[in-house]
């Protein structure tokens, strides 16, 4: 009984750690630009397809993974500089910019269908999801272990970047008070561009590790994106640690719901969480709104 539950908890943690990467990217962009990036999942989709193409052409996994990261980050950065900055200069408001990200999502979806087709394909992945290890009473597959690792490493690297580097200090300053950061000589556009690139790269990691478990099709990141979004809302859209906590809670809750309630409700849960959080604690578990003294 307990063993079985541990098993579900582990499965949930492993899924949750990938949601965490998605959620971290959403939060990173939201807290620095107040833009909710609806193309977040689709950027990962196109990058994962790039990895798929590279792997099909017998490139090694690391080359393919690297290419995917570069492509994902490049799309994010290009969208920020090419579209958002220009829109902002023309006086676009926040809603307008959010709609622009929706537009990017649709463009990427179209491009992916056009180039790779709409048929689901299997990503030739070096890590197996059928080879398993038994730890105590819990059976873990290689893939779920790798997912957990990817989530941990990704979160840790982001933590180090934001908390321990100068670039991170500039990122924190920019997201808290853009004008002050600017008058202290921080090139805020650059910093925000880097944030877009890092956020996109995080979701690419999630995409590459999710693809083998799901099938790779042009819309496969939609579900994980919405889960990441729910996790971010749960943790607090402003809080990077909140994103991780929210994602792990969501992952476990989802897994337990699927096991003990009804598998059909597994996906509904994310949205129930969004609704409940917005009603009960809109700032999320760890979030707090930055307030400006007037």
């Amino acid at each position: 009984m307990i063993d079985q539950m541990l098993q579900y908890v582990f499965t949930g943690l492993s899924a949750g750690s990938l949601y965490a990467l998605v959620a971290l990217g959403i939060v990173l962009i939201y807290r620095s630009t107040r833009v909710l990036n609806f193309a977040h999942g689709d950027i990962a989709t196109v990058a994962t397809f790039v990895a798929y193409s590279a792997l099909s052409q017998q490139y090694s996994f690391f080359v393919a993974f690297g290419a995917a990261l570069v492509v994902g980050a490049a799309v994010g950065v290009a969208f920020y500089f090419g579209v958002l900055v220009k829109a902002q200069r023309e006086g676009a408001n926040l809603l307008g910019m959010v709609i622009l990200t929706l537009g990017l999502a649709l463009i990427i979806q179209g491009a992916v269908v056009w180039y790779w087709g709409a048929e689901p394909v299997a990503l030739p992945f070096p890590i197996s999801d059928t080879r398993t290890y038994t730890i105590g009473a819990v059976v873990v597959s290689q893939l779920s272990l790798a997912s957990l690792g990817a989530g941990l490493v990704g979160s840790l690297l982001l933590y180090l970047l934001v908390q321990k580097t100068r670039l991170g200090l500039a990122m924190r300053a920019t997201s808290e008070n853009l004008m002050a950061a600017q008058t202290l000589g921080i090139p805020t556009r650059m910093v925000l561009g880097v944030s877009w690139g890092v956020a996109a790269a995080l979701s690419v990691v999630a995409g590459v590790f999710l693809a083998p478990a799901l099938l790779l099709d042009p819309f496969f990141m939609l579900d994980p994106f919405l889960k990441g979004f729910a996790a971010a809302v749960l943790g607090g859209l402003n809080s990077l640690p909140g994103a991780v906590v929210g994602a792990l809670i969501l992952g476990v809750a989802e897994s337990l719901t699927g096991a003990y309630l009804a598998i059909q409700f597994k996906n509904t849960l994310a949205f129930l969480i969004i609704i409940v959080v917005l009603l009960v604690r809109p700032e999320g578990l760890l979030g707090k709104e930055f307030k400006e003294r007037v």
Partner: peptide, 25 residues
């Protein structure tokens, strides 16, 4: 360099980190 009438500080950073942001350039 300048200061603002209504203060524009980084409220969630420590005093020292606020100064360090000033060192950024």
């Amino acid at each position: 360099a300048r200061t603002f009438q209504n203060l524009r500080l980084f409220h969630n950073l420590s005093v020292l980190d606020n100064l360090m942001v000033g060192r950024h350039l």
